[in-house]
């Protein structure tokens, strides 16, 4: 076991990791941050997306020891300082962007990367960017609507999936 120290959501946090310990397992089991979900564990579904040094990655396919010292942001770090939902999270609630909610942490983390790169995406760009995030409830329409709304675009005319 090796000690791994990360800055997670602005706080320095340490835990023990084997060579094979995945970042997703480290966050959930060692640091107790269970907001990061493990869906497929094969880097396809995107439920485990977190940001490492500002980049969205699938934490089930990153070794904890490989990101020693990194700045990590998880879903637990997305809310506003007063604990209220941030704009993107609030948009998911307002537009019913989740059904069972399992994929939601990954969707929010991926979508926030998209909006950082492209603050006013088209609907097609949102769908394309979220290609690596799977919603098993197939609730994509309202997820896309929530991301569009969070970008400040009018979604009142959005009625049906393409």
């Amino acid at each position: 076991m090796t000690k791994v120290t990360l800055t997670v959501n602005g706080r320095s946090m340490s835990g023990q990791a084997e060579g094979r310990t995945l970042l997703s397992s480290f966050l959930r089991e060692e640091l107790g941050l269970t907001g990061t979900h493990v869906g497929c564990d094969t880097s396809q579904c995107g439920a485990c997306v977190v940001h490492v040094d500002g980049q969205a990655v699938k934490s089930c396919t990153v070794l904890a020891q490989d990101v020693e010292g990194a700045n990590v942001t998880t879903i637990e770090g997305m809310a506003n300082a007063d604990g209220s939902l941030n704009t993107l999270q609030q948009a998911f609630q307002d537009h019913h962007g989740l059904q069972c909610g399992f994929c939601t942490p990954g969707m929010v983390m991926a979508a926030s990367s998209l909006l950082a790169e492209n603050p006013k995406p088209t609907e097609a760009e949102v769908r394309h960017y979220l290609e690596g995030n799977i919603c098993r409830c197939t609730g994509y329409h309202n997820i896309v609507k929530a991301v569009m709304a969070a970008s400040g675009q009018d979604v009142s005319d959005t009625v049906a999936a393409e």
Partner: peptide, 9 residues
């Protein structure tokens, strides 16, 4: 290649 998260790694 892949998706945005795969391209970052």
């Amino acid at each position: 290649i892949g998706d945005p998260m795969v391209r970052n790694r």
